[in-house]
Design a protein around this nucleic acid. Structure first.
Lengths: 341, 341
DNA sequence: CTGTTAGCGCTTTCAT
DNA sequence: ATGAAAGCGCTAACAG
């Protein structure tokens, strides 16, 4: 069990009879070092089994080369796509990603931010938890000029960039589609309206109803956690409703699918009795029978763009804070669950 | 935009007229510091907005307090459960987790290991990619006494601990169940046999066939990537088979579900024509109609145990390497997709 | 193009 | 129970 001492730049320097500074520069491909010396340095480093000490490097340079990501939960295809997109861009720019989950709790989100701060991330990307209501926990970062990018569940903040889709428009189209299929009594199952994604979708839904001469009733809104439990619960509610709705627009696919499932078991026919449309284009939407109409949400692209925007900030001076939002395109996908004509 | 200088232990020491060493100890709750001094230190630290510099700390102490995790893909309920379990245990022991995906590629896995090594993780937990065939890339870690724990997709290694389930037994029971339901011609859809999970499941499947007097044919095995594509592809194969199988045991739920879906659309009745059983107890197994029988796989628990085992190693001397494997219990879950009697 | 130098902020042994 | 002192390995300003 050989416990070989760590090789340092000094060992390399000694081996080559040059200075540690030169070795440091050579390893980083600094322009002011001759090709010849660089090659010698890298060769010797390789032979000696050198690995750079990030701690020393970070300590000295005051940068961690790490980007933090805080998401509500890593449980959907959408989120893993987002992360994959971020990882791609971050790796190409040789940043590391550290990911943590708020589990939809503001409390945990605050803890996560603190941890990220203490880990000295160079920047942070975040999608807010359900019940985050103030955002003062980000101040410690902003005060130090650490850039923040919000994606999906965002917040208008004078110092931050947002990456979003047009949720209102997408919801409008979804609702309009149901109306065009003959639905007259459409309910909307969604999440906490404090989050932009849900409030915007609500606005789109309501606006479509109005534009097509349908009335909106408060009783046709169901605010839930949008998880599987909620799918079951809302299905039971729907069964008890009188009159029953003939169309349901759900703000995410996994909840929609559970809801459909329960309704089917109780003998309700989809789409004939009730038409359904979800949101996110999760693979599960193509498993449920009939396949679920939905809104395609470009997760991977969102991840890529969030990361490249953040890295853009990082490469300019601190405190530059170009505060524009970027809106990606989403798209209605029509499947059997909503086709009645 | 105030750009306040970072507060260091020296600032706290100066404020209190004590030494930096005492501050360092006080902050870490060292036993040899009086309660009174500790309180003063912590109060002042709080007021001054001190945050410890992990780089300096790690540099000095030569530990990162970070555990690496390499998984094939973060796309299943099983994997997110594993990670959640790990996170819980790691956080409680105040370790950080850094997670990366091999995307089923040995190449990428090797890169990931290098990154982890350069990030100086204190330990590593890993589930192997499909095509990892030698494991010399772990030697750099082992040579330095950095402990390794394999979970799920493991490898017999004299220096490492494995956390697994009894895949052979689980597969045996799954197959036996199909046989008991009257299936006479059962095929098995699985992943690369180089991975223990698939080779063991194969052995269980074959052994059950033998025990119940059914013949095993090579042609009844389909080795795939077990992704959604594979589900579609194998369904098409099954449709062309003559005679058709009357039972299918698939080594994961998401592939099983896609396969069922395609078969259903081509008019094959499940379970009457073909009975199905999957593996993992993914939520999707309760969405497909008929609900998919499966094997419950304790992901969260696996994560917890892997992490606590690793942290156990970390807290003892390096190079202790207790090489026992831990086998968790899995469980057959019977649903409509396999019930024919 | 390369060398010298002075720390980055913390931990820890050895004293006292 | 506390202090003093010596670096951990690296970077970057400055000098040549």
């Amino acid at each position: 069990m050989q416990s070989d001492k760590e090789v340092t730049i000094y060992d390399i320097a000694a081996e080559l009879n040059i200075s540690a500074g030169t070795v440091s520069r050579g390893l980083k491909d600094h322009p002011a070092i001759s090709k010849k010396t660089k090659k010698k340095i890298n060769d010797v480093a390789m032979v000696m089994g050198y690995r750079s000490n990030t701690f020393a490097s970070n300590l000295r340079s005051k940068r961690s080369n790490t980007i933090g990501v805080i998401i509500p939960r890593m449980n959907s295809n959408f989120m893993s796509s987002v992360i994959a997109g971020m990882e791609k861009v971050a790796n190409e720019a040789s940043y590391n990603l550290i990911i943590s989950q708020s589990l939809e709790s503001a409390q945990k989100e605050i803890m996560n931010v603190k941890t990220m701060f203490n880990n000295r991330v160079d920047g942070l990307m975040i999608s807010l938890a359900y019940d985050t209501d103030d955002v003062s926990h980000f101040d410690i970062l902003l005060k130090k000029g650490i850039p923040l990018v919000f994606f999906d569940r965002v917040l208008e903040h004078p110092l931050c960039t947002n990456i979003i889709i047009d949720n209102k428009k997408a919801a409008y189209e979804a609702t309009k589609h149901l109306i065009e299929q003959g639905c007259k009594n459409i309910i909307h199952i969604t999440g906490p309206l404090a989050r932009n994604v849900y409030s915007e979708r609500f606005l789109g839904y309501r606006s479509a109803l109005q534009d097509f001469g349908l009335e909106f009733h408060d009783a046709n809104m169901m605010i839930t956690k949008l998880d599987e439990q909620a799918g079951i619960y809302t299905a039971e509610k729907i069964i008890q409703m009188n009159p029953r709705p003939d169309g349901v627009f759900v703000a995410n696919d996994s909840c929609a699918v559970m809801c459909m499932s329960v309704l089917k078991h109780s003998g309700i026919r989809i789409p004939d009795d009730i038409a359904f449309i979800g949101f996110n284009n999760d693979p599960i939407s193509r498993v449920i029978e009939p396949n679920l109409s939905t809104i395609n949400y470009p997760g991977f692209e969102m991840g890529e763009i969030a990361a490249s925007k953040l890295i853009g900030h990082l490469n300019k001076e601190r405190n530059i804070n170009v505060t524009n939002s970027i809106t990606l395109r989403s798209e209605l996908i029509v499947r059997a669950s909503s086709v009645r004509i």
